[in-house]
């Protein structure tokens, strides 16, 4: 009997390589452990053995059974591996391009906006948003720009008709709704709601009734900032803006303040920068933003006490910053959305 068992294992070992399908495996198994299989037949002989030999033989049978199971399972693995490879096909050429190889991109204006905001966020500014459809009060009157001011000219601002009705906004007197010419209105809305201290950025799209050319766009984007607290002074303003441009253009960036005029700040400045990292613009003074100390008249419109608090404000064009950062020579690229342009600003 032992010889039979021995032969049986040998037969299984030598026969396993010939088995390559699941059906063959079933047949192969049956020849050993099926109802008429050789191991089944040998096992039946156990009854004829003397009792004292039965356990020894039983153990042997079990050992053989395990050997066979091991063989069956390795055949099973082999078959599965072959089937999987067939299903997966031949090895890939990993150098072939993927089907949708165009990377998604955020617009360079979005990236520039985030870059600007990111720097100010580090020093405690948070973002506020407001509507693009605004009222004359929030865009002009509250910003110390009276009706006779040239900035309120119909020439430069898009107006909505007199009977225009905006959800959630009441008109004051006979004012008009307009497309906001700057994002300062958001600062007014924020101050009207929050008590000082206030440290905010208001980014967003603005509109100017302007003929489009390489440097002018009728839609454009701004980021404006405002800080109001006790004892905010001109030196603080310079400190924050120096920090900003050095983060943006490099630590060797120099700045200068040119006194200027805006109705909502007093004193007002234009800030120029000079840097060595700006390609063709390196070493030149470039106008980068407008800024100043919040005019006390502005505080009076939002119920702040100008004797108690002071503040600074600044504003910059996102297009201009993006053009300087990337050396873009024509503002119209931003609004044409040619993929060959957009893809140059892949997020990395």
């Amino acid at each position: 009997m032992e010889e039979e068992l021995h032969a049986l294992v040998k037969q299984a070992e030598s026969g396993q390589n010939a088995v390559s399908t699941r059906a063959e495996l079933a047949d192969f198994k049956a020849t050993f452990v099926g109802p008429n299989g050789s191991l089944t037949t040998v096992s039946k002989g156990i009854g004829k053995l003397p009792n004292d030999q039965k356990p020894v033989f039983g153990k042997k049978i079990n050992e053989v059974k395990q050997r066979l199971e091991g063989i069956f399972s390795s055949i099973q693995d082999k078959i599965e591996a072959v089937e999987f490879e067939a299903r997966m096909g031949p090895a890939v050429d990993p150098s072939l391009p993927v089907a949708e190889s165009q990377p998604g991109t955020e617009h360079p204006l979005t990236q520039a906006r985030e870059q600007i905001i990111g720097i100010f966020r580090q020093i405690g500014f948070t973002v506020v948003e407001g509507p693009e459809l605004e009222t004359e009060f929030f865009c002009f009157d509250a910003l110390n720009t009276p009706a006779s001011h040239p900035a309120r000219d119909m020439q430069d601002t898009y107006y909505l008709p007199g009977d225009f009705r905006l959800h959630g906004e009441q008109k004051r007197d006979d004012e008009s709704f307009i497309l906001r010419p700057h994002t300062s209105a958001v600062q007014i809305r924020t101050m009207a709601k929050r008590k000082p201290p206030v440290r905010i950025l208001s980014p967003g799209r603005c509109f100017r009734r302007d003929t489009v050319d390489a440097t002018h766009s009728a839609n454009f984007h701004q980021v404006e900032g405002l800080y109001v607290d006790r004892e905010v002074n001109i030196r603080d303003l310079k400190a924050v803006l120096d920090h900003f441009v050095q983060e943006l253009f490099g630590s060797d960036t120099r700045t200068r303040f040119r006194p200027s005029f805006f109705p909502f700040t007093e004193p007002s400045f234009e800030m120029d920068v000079q840097s060595t990292n700006l390609g063709k613009l390196s070493g030149r003074w470039i106008e980068i933003l407008g800024c100043g100390m919040v005019d006390p008249n502005v505080f009076s419109h939002v119920g702040y006490d100008a004797e108690e608090v002071s503040g600074y404000a600044f504003g910059m064009g996102v297009e201009r910053i993006a053009m300087i950062l990337h050396g873009i020579d024509d503002i119209r690229h931003f609004y044409q959305n040619d993929l060959r342009f957009l893809q140059q600003f892949k997020s990395v």
């Binding site: 949708e100 165009q102 990377p103 998604g104 991109t105 955020e106 617009h107 204006l109 979005t110 985030e114 948070t126 973002v127 506020v128 948003e129 693009e132 898009y158 497309l179 980014p203 799209r205 509109f207 009728a218 839609n219 931003f334 609004y335 959305n337 993929l339 957009l342 893809q343 997020s347």
Partner: peptide
């Protein structure tokens, strides 16, 4: 502001899914 947070997240989601962001005039 929640508007800014939403805009940032949506832009990241779409660009990560192969969308290219455009800026088009509002009129």
């Amino acid at each position: 502001d929640a508007i800014a947070i939403f805009g940032g997240r949506a832009g990241k989601y779409l660009s990560a899914n192969g969308f290219n962001e455009c800026n088009i005039y509002s009129t």
